[in-house]
Design a binder for these strands. Structure first.
Length: 889
RNA sequence: GGGCGGGUAGCUCAGUUGGGAGAGCAUCGGCCUUACAAGCCGAGGGUCACAGGUUCAAGCCCUGUUCCGCCCACCA
């Protein structure tokens, strides 16, 4: 027999978590079986965290949910592959290493490209494992032997293959366009990498004088510095104010240029002055207008954000924002600034570094994604991939339908260098998977590779199949592609999920995943996204050290209701740590009474509490399985919490204590021990996906369980023991008994009677059957309500000095001769009466309503009638009691 | 401007074939009852944002209003 010594008094996760994680890894319990496995394949690819990443709450939630799914599926007998890895995170990683170099007094430019990249690899070798170690502390059961990195040889091959294929298909092209340029990251970024923010700015009205006469045109702009690059002014052809002006010329202030007035429907007559200055090199709309009207494109801001020589001697070299002030001052001086007003408008910033993005003319590589997007929309429409919760599909369609070409080239060094070579002699462009030896056009050996690298999301888009060995047709792909589900936050729905769908459908001819589960974002108390730059981060590792990984995991799971963001508070984590401890102590207690002899085949005679808890357990396993199957993690957590604490601990354990103590004979003792063992075992297994560490720790003290809990089977109706079965009769009877006990406890509490004072109780049951059922459970009632004497009869005289509680058709009299406080009892009953009256009023209203009686379904009417009778009976009994109390008082 | 989500107890939030408003934390009262004071037993507390509609019946379905949050959009 086990003794409580084997488990400490309180649960301390500190050593436990590390010990079991190590054990799981050593025993290879996370490893997927190979393609010969008979089991059902279940696969998840991890959203690869940045290799520079530090675990944040978003990861913690994301990983916890995936881990729940994977662990649950393993318990269900599936062959689970959870593919882990990290993302090389081009710009982010380059930034980190550059900072380090700066601290060392050098820079990437000092080192040169090759040496710099060498440094980044070194950095990764040294620090890149941090995030992985942190995922392990959370308990992530990934198949670590298969860990991938987006810059691995295999994945790089996949990247080059995809690039080459798309190029050959005409879906990748290179050209000079206006792109979003981040002057700080010093690279082009894609449209979706621009984050728009409302900013306080000004709207400046500037007079552009006619070149050939009096007067002029007033334009309005938020960016006066860009006027230096203006090559036209546009008005709407239907605008009567400016009728006949098209074709005339204006003099561009602060320069010696004369620019044309053009007519274009794009111009909104109601905005500003109705005259629009055109800067084709620095505004996307102006770029389009400039192209249609063949205006010059003059670049006045350089890649660093400084004014170019083209901006004029006066302004060249100024920072763009300094220049804005200078231009405004100069205009004022010349009397050309007509008006200046405060203006709040949205400004594009780099989503990574928050620097104001500069639209810039530049030669870049683009993917024509429209054809890919169409196919990726189709697979969602026809249900091959299901997005959960469903409301995200609308957002997905919306975005995909309006998708624009994807700028994939980045002017940084760390990343997949674009597999394109330029012939120095003839200018030919060669796109190839392997480095070409000579020019395909002129046989020259003077080839220079494109220096740009690819957008990091280009390689992540291939993740579901590149990690499994593609372009080779590997057994892994055959077994696990398409994957079962992708679990991620909505913030990368477009960045990543949409692109994986596009690439997966295009290259694999099959969706990358059957389900996409979009979970909540973890936010701070103000509902803001947690981010390092905002400084509102709660560090999961701190939380794990303080409360344990299980407490954090359970909290996140309980929070993870679909469609609602998580605002995390530490007090709630503390609350769930209490739950872990509760479980621990319940197990500690149970294990004192469980031994290897408690085999189920010897189980014959169950008491009411046994039948009841087994019935509840049967319902629970159904609830939990269904909840996890449908990604309703919070429902699974809530059901388990309620069962363990409020049914198993509060009622069952208390009810069977006398049995366990051996007070009711050997048979009863053995019976309850068998049930106890079964319930505890099943609880542990069902909880294991959510709280793996503590369940494993307890599992190993369970006699007869010598393998890991990870190798147990999830309790299911079809495979579980027959004793675990729904039993409506037992549940109803138990509820009756619980009602009587609660009634007595209520009196005790309200009348301020000490728990140590045993009470005498007489119960009047409404009918004989009820009487029999209550009498049969007298021992439980006496025990749990702490009674010194108990009697139940169908009819009898109402005791004189008693506090009364009415439940269903049962009246409970707590005898209080000599101690009853009539005033208190009167108040208590009146309170009860008031409640009753309120309920009765509602029910009566329904029953007096013919429409209700005629139209409501029979079972609903029946229920209401029953409840009416019940309420009325209770009222009568209470009234009688109240009358008596009034007499005495 | 468009789209999405939300408004339920003091706080944080659950609550779908529409049919008796819930949990955790906090508060109040009583308990060291031999697993657990990180606990046990009780109690109080809500016009389910507002207005209308559908229905026998609405927190839930429909319409409008309002407030908050997020996403998207080329108004200089």
């Amino acid at each position: 027999m086990n003794t409580p010594r084997e488990l400490d008094k309180g649960y301390d996760p500190a050593g436990v978590e590390e010990r079991w994680y190590q054990h799981w890894e050593e025993e290879k319990l996370f490893a997927a079986e190979d393609e010969d496995s008979e089991k059902t394949a279940y696969a998840i690819v991890i959203p690869p965290p940045n290799v520079t990443g530090m675990l944040h709450m978003g990861h913690a939630l994301n990983i916890t949910l995936q881990d729940i799914l994977c662990r649950y599926r393993r318990l269900c007998g599936d062959n689970v592959l959870w593919m882990p890895g990290t993302d090389h995170a081009g710009i982010a990683t380059q930034n980190v290493v550059e900072k380090k170099l700066m601290a060392e007094g050098t820079s990437r430019h000092d080192l040169g490209r090759e040496a710099f990249i060498e440094k980044v690899w070194e950095w990764r070798q040294e620090y890149g494992g941090t995030i992985i170690r942190q995922l392990k502390r959370l308990g992530a059961s990934c198949d670590w032997d298969r860990e991938r990195f987006t810059m691995d040889d295999g994945l790089s091959m996949a990247v080059r293959t995809v690039f080459k294929t798309l190029y050959d298909e005409g879906l990748i092209y290179r050209g000079k366009y206006l792109i979003n340029w981040c002057p700080r990251c010093h690279t082009a970024i894609a449209d979706i990498e621009v984050a728009y923010e409302e900013m306080q700015g000004g709207l400046y009205h500037i007079l552009y004088p006619f070149a050939d006469g009096e007067g002029g045109l007033v334009v309005a702009t938020t960016r006066p510095e860009t006027m230096l690059g203006d090559t036209g002014v546009a008005v709407n052809p239907d605008d009567e104010r400016y009728a006949g002006l098209a074709g005339r010329k204006v003099r561009l202030p602060l320069t010696d240029r004369v620019i044309p007035v053009i007519a274009d429907n794009y111009v909104d007559t109601s905005f500003g002055t109705g005259a629009l200055k055109i800067t084709p090199a620095h505004d996307p709309n102006d770029f389009e207008i400039g192209r249609t009207h063949q205006l010059d494109m003059i670049k006045v801001i350089d890649d660093q954000g400084y004014m170019t020589a083209e901006a004029g001697e006066q302004f060249a070299g100024l920072d763009r924002f300094e220049c804005r002030k200078a231009v405004v001052a100069a205009l004022k001086a010349e009397g050309l600034l007509e008006k200046q007003e405060d203006y709040i408008h949205s400004v594009g910033t780099c989503y990574r570094c928050k620097t104001v993005v500069e639209p810039n003319l530049s030669k870049q590589w683009f993917v024509n994604v429209k054809p890919l997007a169409e196919k990726a929309v189709e697979v969602v429409r026809n249900g091959e991939t299901k997005i959960i919760p469903e409301n995200w599909t609308k957002t997905y369609y919306e975005w995909m339908d309006n998708i624009r070409d994807w700028c994939v080239s980045r002017q940084i060094w760390w990343g997949h260098q674009i597999p394109a070579w330029f012939c120095d002699d003839c200018g030919e462009v060669i796109v190839a998977i392997e480095t070409p030896e000579k020019c395909a056009a002129c046989d020259s050996n003077n080839l220079t590779q494109e220096s740009d690298v690819l957008d990091t999301w280009f390689s992540s888009a291939l993740w579901p199949f590149s990690t499994m060995g593609w372009p080779d047709q590997t057994p892994l792909l055959k077994t696990f592609y398409p994957t079962s589900v992708l679990v991620t936050g909505f913030d990368i729905l477009f960045f990543w999920v949409a692109r994986m769908l596009m690439m997966g459908v295009h290259f694999m001819k099959d969706v990358p995943f059957a389900d996409v589960y979009i979970h909540a974002l973890v936010r701070d108390e103000e509902g803001k996204k947690m981010s390092k730059s905002t400084g509102n981060v709660i560090d999961p590792i701190d939380i794990i050290e303080k409360y344990g990984a299980d407490a954090l995991r359970f909290t996140l799971t309980a929070f993870a209701a679909q469609g609602r963001d998580v605002k995390l508070s530490e007090s709630r984590i503390e609350g769930y740590r209490h739950f872990i401890n509760k479980l621990w102590n319940a197990a500690r207690f149970s294990l004192m009474y469980i031994d290897d002899s408690n085999r189920e085949e010897t189980f014959s005679d169950a008491c009411l509490a046994d039948k009841w808890i087994l019935s509840r357990l049967a319902v629970l396993r159904q609830t939990v399985a269904e909840a996890i199957d449908t990604y309703k993690f919070n429902e699974a957590a809530a059901a388990l919490y309620r069962f363990v604490w409020h049914e198993f601990c509060d009622w069952y354990l208390e009810a069977v204590k006398p049995d366990l103590y051996g007070k009711n004979g050997d048979d009863r003792q053995q019976g309850s021990r068998i049930v106890l063992r079964r319930v505890l075992r099943d609880i542990l297994v069902m909880l294991h996906p959510i709280i793996p560490f503590v369940t494993e720790e307890i599992w190993h003290v369970l006699p007869g369980e010598d393998t890991s809990i990870m190798q147990a089977a999830f309790p299911r109706a079809e495979t579980g023991p027959a004793m675990v079965t729904p039993d409506a009769g037992a549940e109803a009877e138990m509820e009756l008994v619980m009602g009587v006990i609660t009634g007595i406890r209520n009196v005790r509490g309200e009348m301020n009677i000490s728990p140590s004072q045993a009470l005498s109780v007489i119960v009047h049951a409404g009918d004989q059957e009820t009487q029999i059922r209550i009498a049969a459970n007298e021992a439980m009632i006496v025990n749990l309500a702490r009674l010194s004497s108990f009697a139940v009869e169908t009819i009898g005289e109402k005791p004189k000095f008693a506090a009364t509680s009415v439940v269903d058709n049962v009246t409970v009299y707590v005898l209080l001769e000599g101690v009853i406080d009539f005033a208190r009892e009167k108040a208590r009953i009146e309170k009860e009466m008031a409640k009753l009256e309120k309920d009765l009023k509602g029910v009566t209203g329904k029953l007096n309503n013919d429409d209700f009686l005629n139209k409501a379904p029979a079972h609903v009417v029946e229920k209401v009638k029953e409840s009416f009778a019940d309420l009325q009976a209770r009222r009568e009994k209470l009234q009688a009691t109240l009358d008596k109390v009034m007499e005495m008082a």
